[in-house]
């Protein structure tokens, strides 16, 4: 509940704050689709709607797929970038930039292809051997570092190093409303689909042989969930660049707050992730005059202390429970 309120407050603040502050009355008018007294604000507000929508869906989707990754891989250190999505997207977008594709749509398409190729390669390689979380993670680590080195080579040789670097840091500057709408549709649809199987995600967390004994084919579900979460994540990354930390920290924070039951954990992470990214975006736009800090930096700067604070609280609670 608190998170909902925080989210709403965040949206309101995001509307009004920025390089140009907009009075609340104007925002209300804008949201009610009333004609505006002051036409100046209209364009800015339209931009901000897109931005808030992009921040929310990116944060929500990354956090959601973070939960799915952690539970499917049975590893609490997993995040959505573990199986190569970020490395693949980064490499391919760098290639696109180097090859002078300037339209953001083209770069997005490249990034999406790269992300899907790399996560697909990781899954195929580990499936060809013995399919296990352990194999997946190891293959992911190997491919991640391979792609990262490749990326360094591309950046070193490229004349557009700064552009590439900027893309890698993540950005919520989304120009096309269509893009955001399709991303929303897909992410929300995929999230609802996975939510339907929340009890299977619960099952993946418990003893493997116990799950086997009740006749559930774990590998089938693991692959299915990972594929959907990866698509979701690849789509987001292809639009926003690499926004780190949300997919790792928010799931953990949510677990601490609402527990391991996915029926609650998944929607909660979704909303918490979206809210958090809206705030991070707000900070990135307002922290310093006339500079937009890259969003990827802010998520870490804000997320890390927030998470440490949560951990400290949990330790105290743990001591009480044990004592």
């Amino acid at each position: 509940m608190t998170v909902f309120l925080l989210g709403a407050a965040g949206v309101a603040l995001s509307f009004s704050l920025g390089q140009a502050a907009i009075p609340p009355g104007e925002i209300a008018d804008f949201l009610m689709l009333r004609s505006l007294a002051d036409g100046r604000y209209h364009a800015i507000l339209k931009m901000r709607v897109l931005r808030i929508a992009a921040a929310f869906i990116a944060g929500a989707g990354l956090a959601f797929s973070g939960v799915v990754y952690q539970s499917s891989l049975k590893n609490y250190l997993a995040d959505p970038f573990m199986l190569g999505i970020s490395a693949g997207a980064a490499l391919f977008s760098a290639l696109a930039i180097t090859m002078k594709f300037h339209s953001s749509l083209a770069i997005s398409a490249f990034a999406f292809t790269g992300a899907i190729l790399s996560v697909g390669a990781v899954m195929a390689i580990s499936y060809a051997r013995k399919f296990s979380s352990y194999n997946l993670i190891l293959t992911g680590i190997a491919l991640n570092s391979f792609f990262s080195s490749f990326l360094t080579v591309v950046m070193y040789l490229s004349k557009d190093m700064q552009n590439i670097f900027f893309w890698l840091m993540g950005s919520l500057d989304v120009r096309y409303a269509d893009q955001i709408i399709y991303t929303h549709l897909f992410v929300i649809f995929a999230a609802c689909y996975i939510l339907k199987y929340s009890h299977i995600l619960d099952l993946l967390r418990i003893n493997e042989k116990t799950v086997f004994s009740i006749g559930v084919d774990q590998d089938y579900y693991k692959i299915k969930f990972l594929v959907i979460a990866s698509l979701m994540c690849a789509l987001i990354v292809s639009q926003t660049g690499i926004i780190g930390f949300i997919g790792l920290i928010v799931p953990h924070a949510a677990r601490i707050m609402v527990g391991d039951s996915h029926r609650l954990l998944l929607p909660f992470s979704f909303i918490l992730g979206g809210t958090m990214l809206i705030y991070c975006d707000l900070i990135s736009r307002t922290a310093a005059d006339s500079i937009n800090f890259p969003i990827g930096i802010i998520t870490s700067l804000v997320g890390a202390p927030f998470f440490i604070f949560l951990l400290a609280g949990r330790r105290k609670a743990g001591e009480r429970a044990n004592g």
Binding site: H199, D202, R255, G259, S261
Partner: peptide
């Protein structure tokens, strides 16, 4: 971090 009831439902 599942309650006994949530766990048993599985």
């Amino acid at each position: 971090r599942l309650s006994a009831y949530e766990y048993l439902k599985l």
